[in-house]
């Protein structure tokens, strides 16, 4: 096709030139280099596409969360060290427990101590019982009358009679039972 002064690029060639100018036939390329009108048309199209791309960039929101970054774990080999320390500590504890368990002191001393403790406890309880029995000084006991001969069991029974279980009460359980 011969490209004259008034024979501009057609629509297909125009699109082809926008995609990739090297795709144009040699004559069309030659025409394009000489025709400012066709060049301007292509430049306008490219300008619109540039504008689209720039606006898309400007109008896209800002990334708030930054993307993944590799962070090397601090002291990566530490778990081996921790494992060794933990195993060592466990062995030490087992050894200590075994030593205490099998040592001669661990068997005799507790028995002796326990016996002494029981004796002391009995003595202490006996002292406490004595104190409870004689809680008041003798003079107070006399004033309260607790030591008097008249306050024997018979006298107390007279003051506070013992309730006889055979006496009819509200709780006799029989319908129509009469309170005496």
């Amino acid at each position: 096709m011969n490209y004259g002064k008034d024979n501009h690029l057609n629509e297909d060639q125009f699109l082809l030139a926008t995609v990739d100018k090297t795709e144009l036939p040699a004559e069309a390329r030659e025409h394009l280099s000489e025709c400012p009108q066709c060049r301007e048309q292509i430049e306008n199209m490219e300008r619109e596409l540039t504008l689209l791309s720039r606006m898309a960039e400007d109008f896209a929101p800002q990334q708030r969360k930054r993307a993944f970054r590799y962070v090397k774990p601090r002291n990566a080999g530490n778990w081996i060290w921790s494992l060794r320390t933990a195993s060592g500590a466990a062995v030490m504890v087992v050894l200590a427990v075994t030593l205490v368990w099998w040592s001669p002191l661990s068997k005799t001393t507790p028995e002796v101590v326990t016996g002494v403790t029981f004796q002391e406890s009995d003595q202490l309880m006996a002292d406490i019982d004595t104190l409870v029995d004689n809680a008041l000084p003798p003079i107070h006991v006399y004033i309260s009358g607790e030591s008097g001969p008249e306050l024997d069991e018979e006298f107390m029974e007279f003051v506070v009679p013992i309730i006889n279980n055979t006496t009819p009460t509200y709780n006799s359980g029989l319908k129509g039972a009469v309170l005496c």
Binding site: A56, A60, P61, Q63, R64, R66, A67, F68
Partner: peptide, 23 residues
């Protein structure tokens, strides 16, 4: 990361989704 974020955003039109995709 910005290129990838934008690429994802142009296709999802959601910032949060684009961030997740970028990640």
């Amino acid at each position: 990361q910005e290129d990838i974020f934008r690429m994802a955003y142009y296709r999802t039109l959601s910032r949060m989704d684009a961030e997740d995709i970028t990640q």
